[in-house]
Design a protein around this nucleic acid. Structure first.
Lengths: 345, 345
DNA sequence: TTGTAAGCGTTATCAC
DNA sequence: GTGATAACGCTTACAA
């Protein structure tokens, strides 16, 4: 059995409570005994037992992370690795730990969350996604359990602290960027329709078209759930239209990679034949061929801010709900070209 | 305060210990009372407090994951996302949870591990990498704490349970594959020299050359720590040699992406001008241009086996140490071409 | 088959 | 300033 607070107390000739106070660096303990106790702790190699501490203090210093239920393919998307990196960074600074859900299906993940919450395993939760009618959100709200959402809440927007980009503007700017290059036939390749982010980006796309007086064509809008294959399927569909688009707004770099692969197979050149504006600016966006013009949404900050605010809520339950908007920025690379009315497609 | 075992006991007219036994599904409790107690649990919405249970039973059902200290860039490499996915899968099946280290530097991560172990936060640990002189391994061994290594141990190979590929053979086969295509000027682009995997692959490369009677040229062997930039730097270096290689063995797909980008910039075509055999077969390996011939090392299994064996060790401390070798397989795609002696470079 | 009670290693509320 | 002592919610001998 490991060395406990009692062993230290005995060896230092004080009461266990005194040792506990020394650990907490209580001001009510004399510097002298603090020093003595600390020496003993070092000598005996004492380390506090977190489990015991958690039980007594009713707080674990652990934050739970909830992944989307994309059959566990989430890990494949660099977006999640990157938020996790931001979260990891924030959590470390605040001396908290991280626990993950491991379920694949929606139900499994829901159970994971219930176990985390009811089992008092975590002090708060971060949801890495936001989708419509998420029962996890309902559950957390009902139990008044501290959580923050990465993305825009489906409902009760004012009552849920969340960290998000202004995806409507981002998509609008991306579309406008293409319009300025002369394009008017612009396709939209989106992801899962239940995700709020997909909707926001679609909305921004539509807004840009409308403001530019370009008619929205329904056949130009495609949604695919699987990022890699999806990109490939989607372009094929778009390019087989009578009047195929000359430019694409693609909501994820991974999809864009699929798009690039397929256009290449079809003998089309990017950006000469077709332009692409992508999203997320993943690591490989600059390494693809051609390098992708992509909208950087600052994923790292998304994660760090989520942690910061969650811990704020945990440590001060009175904290008002907040909405944090992380800025985005279009990174111009080589996947977009001008569309000249007199030129070729 | 949440509902506890005592509340259930009172409501069901039994002792708390009986409730505890019902939870554990002890055979010493009559079916009748089990049923009654379970009904009360449901009615009251009881959920066991894991923290309390951990303290009493001295086991947490949590596994700690240790990332390499690549300044937290590890997350960027799909390898780690993928092992994590495998681990996640295994852990879920066994009803364990996952806790991560969040430190960036080697020292921070070491502290994370000590906190996990001494704080009794986890029952066992998985190291996602293996490098030379890792003080974490020393620490875990000294404390006789259950852990498994993904990769080949630097020392005490027989005394550390580990899950690995046969990287020597894999690299040898990759090199032989190129040799068979007619190449004899084959470069090696490796990663961090402290990682065991780098060494093994280099060794396999050398072995293949030797057996084929091809002289090893030191200027053909390059190591880079940063995967993306590294690939770019390395290939520039190799191609500026008087007698540049016609084929490359690249130890990571991410590096290969950088290589591809640079060869493209230099106006060279893959595989016409230069061939590439890559490693890991990441998701994007088939989406790059050209698609990468890559050695699949079955990352998912690496993770799942690690979990399986770790939990075996936790639940049965007598378990002998084991070495598990996961098979690999070369996936042929379009990044390799024949080298015709009469043809052009 | 079930109940009683003593831990598990802390923190926190009293006293002194 | 420091020391007893009662929680925290559960498991597990030992009794009954």
């Amino acid at each position: 059995m490991a060395i406990t607070i009692k062993d230290v107390a005995k060896a230092a000739n004080v009461a266990p409570s005194t040792v506990s106070r020394v650990i907490a660096d209580s001001p009510r303990i004399s510097e002298e005994t603090k020093k003595r106790v600390r020496e003993v702790m070092d000598k005996l190699g004492y380390h506090p037992n977190f489990i015991a501490r958690s039980l007594a203090s009713q707080s674990t210093q652990v934050i739970g992370i909830v992944f989307p239920s994309s059959g566990n393919l989430a890990f494949q998307n660099p977006f999640y690795s990157e938020v996790l990196r931001g979260i990891s960074e924030g959590v470390h600074q605040k001396h908290y730990s991280l626990q993950l859900t491991t379920g694949k299906t929606e139900d499994e993940i829901y159970d994971d969350v219930v176990k985390m919450v009811q089992g008092r395993r975590v002090d708060g939760i971060i949801l890495l996604y936001s989708k419509m009618n998420d029962k996890i959100v309902v559950y957390l709200r009902k139990n008044k359990f501290p959580f923050v959402l990465i993305g825009k809440p489906y409902e009760y927007t004012e009552q849920i602290t969340h960290v998000d980009n202004d995806n409507i503007s981002a998509a609008k700017e991306g579309t406008e960027y293409l319009i300025k290059l002369g394009h008017s036939c612009i396709g939209f390749i989106g992801g899962n329709k239940n995700l709020m982010v997909t909707n926001d980006r679609l909305q921004g796309y539509k807004k840009a078209l409308m403001e530019a007086g370009i008619e929205l064509k329904n056949e130009y809008v495609i949604h695919e759930n699987f990022l890699l294959k999806g990109g490939q399927v989607a372009v094929r569909e778009l390019l087989s239209l009578d009047n195929p688009p000359t430019a694409l707004l693609v909501v994820d770099d991974l999809m864009s990679l699929g798009v690039l692969r397929t256009t290449h197979e079809l003998g089309l050149n990017v950006p000469e034949d077709i332009s692409i504006v992508s999203f997320n600016n993943a690591l490989f966006a600059e390494l693809s061929n051609p390098a992708l013009t992509s909208i950087d949404i600052n994923i790292l900050s998304l994660g760090m801010e989520a942690v910061k605010n969650l811990i704020g809520m945990i440590e001060n339950p009175q904290e008002p709900t907040k909405r944090i908007i992380i800025p985005h920025q279009i990174i111009e690379r080589s996947s977009c070209g001008t569309y000249d009315l007199d030129g070729e497609l």
